[in-house]
C-alpha cells in the first residue's frame, strides 16, 4: 500500500463530508455536476476518435521504428539510449502505448538497466501531450490552437535532451 492509494478515496469522502458540514445539498448538487461531466464526455469523443485512429495508424505502419533508426545518431549526442527512442516518440500521443513500450524495454534490458531507468523517468516526467491538447481544446470548441503545440513540444524535447544526462549523472550508466 502506498500513500497514493489513499488520495482518491479520502478526497471522495472528504469532499462529501465537507459539503454536509457546510450544509450543501450534497445529493442534487453532485448529480448536477455529474450531468455536466456526461455532456463533456460526449463533446470530446469526436476528437478522441480522430486522435486514436491517427496514432493507431502510425503505430501499425512501422513509422515509429523507421523514425527511431533515423534519430539514433542524434541520441548519442545527448547521451540518450537509442533503445528508448520509441518511448520519446510515442509518449506524447498515447499513455497506454508508452506503457507498452516501457514493458518492452524493461523486459529486454531490465528495470534497473540504464535504458530501463531512462524509460521510467521519461514516463514519469512527461504527459500525453497531443491527447491533452485535443481533448482540452475540443471541449471548448477551439479550432485554432495557435502556439500550443510548439510550446508543449518544447517541453517534451527538453525532457528528451536532459533525461539521459540526468539519469547518467545521478544513477550512473
Amino acid at each position: 500500500m502506498q500513500i497514493t492509494d489513499f488520495i482518491v478515496p479520502v478526497l471522495f469522502a472528504g469532499i462529501l463530508i465537507f459539503g454536509f458540514a457546510k450544509r450543501v445539498e450534497v445529493f442534487p448538487v453532485f448529480c448536477d455536476g455529474s450531468a455536466e461531466g456526461l455532456k463533456t464526455t460526449a463533446e470530446i469523443l469526436p476528437a478522441l476518435i480522430l486522435l486514436l485512429i491517427s496514432v493507431g495508424m502510425l503505430q501499425a505502419s512501422g513509422a515509429v521504428e523507421l523514425l527511431t533508426q533515423l534519430l539514433t545518431p542524434l541520441c548519442s549526442a545527448v547521451g540518450f539510449p537509442p533503445e528508448c527512442m520509441q518511448m520519446v516518440l510515442l509518449r506524447p500521443f498515447s499513455g497506454s502505448g508508452a506503457i507498452a513500450v516501457y514493458d518492452g524495454i524493461a523486459a529486454e534490458y531490465g528495470a534497473d538497466s540504464f535504458a530501463g531507468r531512462v524509460a521510467a523517468v521519461l514516463l514519469g516526467s512527461s504527459e500525453t501531450t497531443f491527447y491533452t491538447i485535443a481533448v482540452y481544446f475540443s471541449a471548448v470548441k477551439i479550432r485554432k490552437t495557435r502556439y500550443a503545440v510548439p510550446a508543449a513540444l518544447t517541453a517534451d524535447c527538453t525532457a528528451w535532451i536532459v533525461c539521459g544526462l540526468v539519469v547518467a549523472a545521478i544513477m550512473g550508466n
Binding site: 469532499i15 455529474s34 470530446i44
Partner: peptide, 18 residues
C-alpha cells in the same frame, strides 16, 4: 472516461458550493 468525468465534475460542484 465518462464515469470518472461524472464523478469528479460532481465532486467539484459539491466542493465549490461548500
Amino acid at each position: 472516461l465518462c464515469g470518472i468525468m461524472c464523478l469528479w465534475s460532481g465532486l467539484m460542484k459539491v466542493a465549490e458550493e461548500a
